[in-house]
Structures are given as structure tokens and as C-alpha cells.
Design a protein around this nucleic acid. Sequence first.
DNA 1: CACCCGTGGAC
DNA 2: TGTCCAAGGGT
Length: 375
Amino acid sequence: MQRSTSTAEALPLPDSLSTQSPAALLLDWYDRSHRVLPWRITPPMAKAGKRPDPYHIWLSEVMLQQTTVQAVKAYFAKFLTLWPTVGDLAAADTEEVMKAWAGLGYYARARNLKKCAEAVASQHGGCFPDTEEGLKALPGIGDYTAAAIAAIAFNRQSAVLDGNVERVISRLYRVETPVPAARPEMRRLVAAMTPADRPGDFAQAMMDLGSTICTPRRPVCALCPINADCRAFAAGDPERFPVKLAKKAKPVRYGTAYVATDAAGAVYLCKRGDKGLLGGMTEVPGTDWTTDPGQNQTPPFAGKTTPLWRDCGGIVHVFTHFELRLAVRHAEVERDAIVANGWWEPRETLAAQALPTVMKKAIEKALPGCFAKTS
DNA sequence: CACCCGTGGAC
DNA sequence: TGTCCAAGGGT
């Protein structure tokens, strides 16, 4: 493309722009454009030496695993109100933690959160380890979270690689290897880029860049502080990265959920086992969930009488690796009509139970409005 | 390494 | 409407 003489081309670039490293450019951008988040110490305070509370960083990082900032904010505030310190969380009733986590998903995180708090309280004197290795030895803390806490809470020069950073790095270097196979390579690239000064802010800057500028679709490269170093921007194909493998089709499973109420409106609930899907959470009794739509219509509990179940229609709930189509049935029964390992929960306290979203949907289908706020 | 593990929002 | 995806970890 032919270009006429432009003023911009005629002007010499300032030395600061032509010689700064990508990390320095990114930190300058972060100083100006960082997001303000409840668990974050913003750059002026961070540069003045103020460190965030490791408990806050750990709690937010675990909540943010595969979960959006928007969804986490309210849960983060609730947890700090209920349990202001890691010692408080360690001393909490696990059932109360599951109730507080209900709706956020990936419930193994909540079980590991509690285990981790107990380990920090009993084995580390209530203080989080300040190294990657020490952190990674704790339940629920893997490669990413250990590096992130070490960098953000303790200013360690650790290589933080999450989904955002993968996207930024894969575009900067046009990494053609598909994820997750490309992770070791990308980790080396991040490590080489991470500065000794302000590594915590650098990690957060990479994530902010990935979430606001270097987005999965329609990245705003014109506003990117390191576009001059970006090979994908130069090639004009940033959206092609990171390269991913095709994913498998999602199977459908079928089942039936039984919402039983007593004369006072209490609902019969059960507790799921600690392992597997929705582990440790509360549910209404139901059949197994199988791939055969014709199966599973026999109630999985006994009773002295046989209730007449009313067909309430169905719900569809999409999990990570399958879609669930649940038939919902309701009956008002005598309390001795159900003999199982559960309990009758009064209507007033139903919403506060450790019910995952799929179960709230099913109960709502049988008892419309039962989770409506009554204030 | 492949698979399991939730949910809600954006396009 | 379907598809993708979001600060991943455990096994």
C-alpha cells in the first residue's frame, strides 16, 4: 500500500516508546487502565509497598477458577462477611461453606477450600506459604493458582499462566501448537517476559489485557500497549490464536426428580455423596441419570403409602460434559410416605440450603415461586 | 494425558 | 438457538 508522507511518520519516536520492553509497556498501561476489583491492591498503593491480604487473594483466585469476575464478586463479599480470616474459615462447619458456595459451581473447589483453610491454620500457623512450592502442596491450589498467589500476594517472580495469558502469549508469538500441549512452551515464554520488578502487577496486567483488549473475539489491537511486539497483529490473524482442538459432542442424559412436600409445605431433601458430580451438595430424591430416555421412572425410595405423583413437566440443565433432561414430579404426602436417608426442610429455609442450581430449577418447576424473595 | 467437574452471560 | 467461554484442579 502506498502511503503519502504523514506527519506521524515524519516525527521521530520518543526513546521511551522505541526502547521499552513489552513488560514495561504493559505495566505503564496497567497503571493507567487497570480494573478495580474488591480483592486487588491498585498500582499506586502496590508501588508504595502495600501488599494484599493473602487470604483475599487465595479466596478470589479459587473462586475465579473457570468463573467470571462478575459471578465471583457477590460470593467473595459474602465469604469475607461470614469468615473474615482463614482461621474463621478453617473453624467453620463444612455444610455452611457448601451452602455459601451453592450456585457458584465446581463444588470440589468448596470442599478443597475448606481443607486448604484447615491445613493453613493447623500446619502453617494461620499464614499462607509464600512460595509456589509451598502453595501448590495445598488442596485446590494447582500450577496457576500457586503462581498467581506467589506473584500477587508475595511479589514473587513466578510465571503466571492462565487462560488470559495463554491468549496473549499465543498471539504475541503466534504459537501454532494447540493448547493444552502448548502450555510448557508458553510457560517458558511468560517466564522470560516476567520482570523482577512488580511481578504481581505484571501478572494482573496480563490478565487485564486478556480480558479487556486481547479478547477471544474481536480483540481491540489498536488499543493494545504491546501491539508493536505482537506477531499475530502484524500478520492480521490474532483471532486464530490460541489454536484449540475440536471438542467432543455433549451427550444427553435423562432422569426423574421427585419433589415431595408435606402438609406444611416442607420439602424432602437428601445429601449427595462427597465425590463426583455435585459432590457434597443437597438434592431432591431422584432416579439415576442415564442415556436411556425410557428408563428411570421408578421413585428411588420406599414408603408406607404410594403417593400419586403429578407430572410437572421437565427442565433442561447443561453441565460441562453432558446435557441433563429431568422430568419433575410432585406430590403432597404424609411424612411416612417416604423412607430414605433425607430430611424435611421447611419452606422458609429452603433457599438457604446447599442446593445446586439444577436442583433449584427442578424444585421451582414443581413449586413455582418458592425461591422468590419475600422481602 | 484425557476425562471429569457448574453456571451464566455474550454473541 | 447454539456455541463458546471464564483468573483450573484432581485423578
